[in-house]
Design a protein around this nucleic acid. Structure first.
Lengths: 340, 340
DNA sequence: GCTCCTCGGGATAACGTTATCGCGAGGATA
DNA sequence: TATCCTCGCGATAACGTTATCCCGAGGAGC
């Protein structure tokens, strides 16, 4: 009786509640009650229905249940890459699971159109809420969705054009800590290479670095290099900073990809002659020589907070929009303590 | 007109096709035709309906559509970790997208119960198909789902207890290539440390290594160390292999986590005195000193093939079960060419 | 012994979409 | 001018579930 019947040459049709009810000799509604563990069902009915369920290999259809109840028990996460190291996403999945929510994750893949498509698709699926690591520059197209009550939380960066809950790292403090750490180790010519100022975090970190230079009375020229993260651009910035008239003795990198580009360009031999503090953790940072001193984001806390903000928004769509800033920490491992 | 009406203090209700039809003064079915771009609709109706859609910010409900049509346009992927480096998953997402399919990915998290829950949940959601990187030891509980016509493909490892399509790397050849590469560089005492033989790939790779030793007339004792991947176990295996009466001069590691444990235990200084070929790519392998020589899996090809097998299974549920073995390649970078 | 209440189960109407069918208008043909 | 298509839209029934009623049986109270 395991073979499901096929309908006219197509795929086999799964048994429904109606089939189970017929098999058990009870009403449709009673099967629903048993499936949902309604305590008002008599034990002999429970037995009969469960036997029928087992005999038919009945499996409830979540789509129908969701359509009827209105909730999906699922939240969406639109992040830049799901299949890369992404501790925030891991924390989101864990927190969601603990809250009894299913997570639906998709990669925006550094593509504005793809981000748009994914978010709209999530809206059409009527997910209970959406967490997005924004990439695009204008999210005003989501305003109708917000008006319609779609719970939305931004992670890592705020969204532009709309007002939504947001959780992100304390970029300015992190850059300040990196600068201060190198300054305390005697460095005076400290350079910064980071992401383009077109990107929010790139903008914020470059600004913080300029402010740190100013606060310590250091000149700015030739030391701050935001821009696209290509090997060529990073190499050029590095050459300007290190081989100019007044060469830098220390470097702060603004994000992981910049850090990797710098390490690859420096090569093994010269990497140990430059003091380096990197913003953001790098996989295997402890296996490099010297091991990498980093400003680490509290990624788990960020992911957890994103889910909590979303859950609060789901419960109360009218609550005031909230922004959470999570502190960063300095992890001393060697590369940041290279003397002048 | 952007504010959606609320129903008795709850969440705002999104407009439906009925609302659009009323607003446009046409029949429900006509709205459906416009939304689905049915060419048999007169242009003046299209205009009216599209105006109503824009005015109400109507967004179709995919759940209802899926319930009605039977297909979801979504495939599921149950992998061990979504938020870690996982090129197979990246390839799956890309291939699925190119085929017009949405990907729903979830982490089994090295937990047999969690794997079970995820797979059953995917069945209840009536996804069009499922790709699984199996972890558990017995998947016979999926037989009813297979009988019901759920398309299922295994990736990286076969499934036990049921017969499903499968795509995986040529483990045996890879281990053979690693051994042969070291042998050709003059090494005669070559050790192997890898995953437990409880795991399919661990079993297959350890067996292949024993076979390689035998084929070259080398003794086996003290050289083959499968087991749990804990720092302590790997360290003990390493000590046995390197400091025994007849110490090994070269090492093959059976997977990424073992490789990392070995590198961490050896430390920077001694890593360059042991010839090492690692099975599976390691992130930043090129930045290590010496850079890591690896047996690389064709991860993109594996992910792509998994989706193709699944699509073929969806189209023809009755087609014979197929197993695809993808070759591996040797990537020479330095660590495998350390002389005796 | 009759009424009232409670308790457990059944019929039926949603949820929002698509598929099937039918029907009226208009043009082509005889 | 009558008939037959064809074309384009509308009414209505599903899809598989849950929620809202209602009803019948049984026990308690007078």
């Amino acid at each position: 009786m395991t073979q499901a019947r096929r309908e006219s040459g197509g795929r086999p049709r799964r048994p429904t509640m109606v089939d189970v009810a017929r098999e058990a000799g009870v009403a449709l509604r009673t099967v629903s009650r048993v499936v949902n563990q309604d305590p008002t069902v008599g034990p002999e009915y429970v037995t009969k229905v469960e036997a029928a369920i087992a005999a038919l290999n009945y499996r409830p259809d979540d789509r129908a249940r969701q359509l009827r109840t209105g909730v999906t028990g699922t939240i969406g996460a639109a992040v830049r890459r799901i299949a890369e190291v992404n501790p925030e996403l891991a924390a989101i999945e864990r927190t969601a699971r603990d809250a009894g929510l299913t997570l639906f994750a998709a990669s925006t893949d550094f593509d504005e159109k793809r981000e748009h498509d994914i978010l709209i698709s999530m809206c059409r699926q009527r997910l209970d809420g959406i967490i997005v690591e924004p990439f695009g520059e204008n999210h005003a197209y989501l305003q109708p969705e917000l008006d319609a009550g779609v719970p939305l939380v931004a992670m890592d960066r705020p969204m532009s054009g709309i007002s939504v809950d947001c959780v992100m790292s304390d970029n300015a403090s992190g850059i300040g800590m990196a600068f201060h750490h190198l300054h305390r180790h005697g460095h005076r010519r400290i350079a910064y290479i980071g992401d383009s100022e077109r990107v929010y975090s790139g903008r914020e970190r470059a600004a913080a670095f300029r402010a740190a230079l100013g606060a310590h009375g250091e000149p700015v020229e030739g030391l701050v290099h935001p821009g696209e993260i290509t090997p060529e651009r990073v190499a050029a910035a590095l050459d300007t900073a290190l081989h100019g008239p007044n060469p830098a003795t220390a470097l702060v990198t603004g994000n992981m990809d910049t850090t990797l580009a710098v390490l690859r360009h420096l090569g093994p031999q010269s990497a140990s002659r430059l003091a380096l503090v990197a913003f953001d953790e790098v996989p295997l940072a402890d296996l490099l020589q010297p091991a990498l001193t980093v400003i680490a984001q509290q990624t788990t806390e960020i992911g957890r907070t994103a889910v909590e903000l979303l859950r609060a928004r789901i419960v109360d769509p009218a609550r005031p929009v909230q922004s959470v800033v999570v502190p960063v920490t300095l992890k001393v491992r060697g590369s940041g303590e290279v003397p002048v």
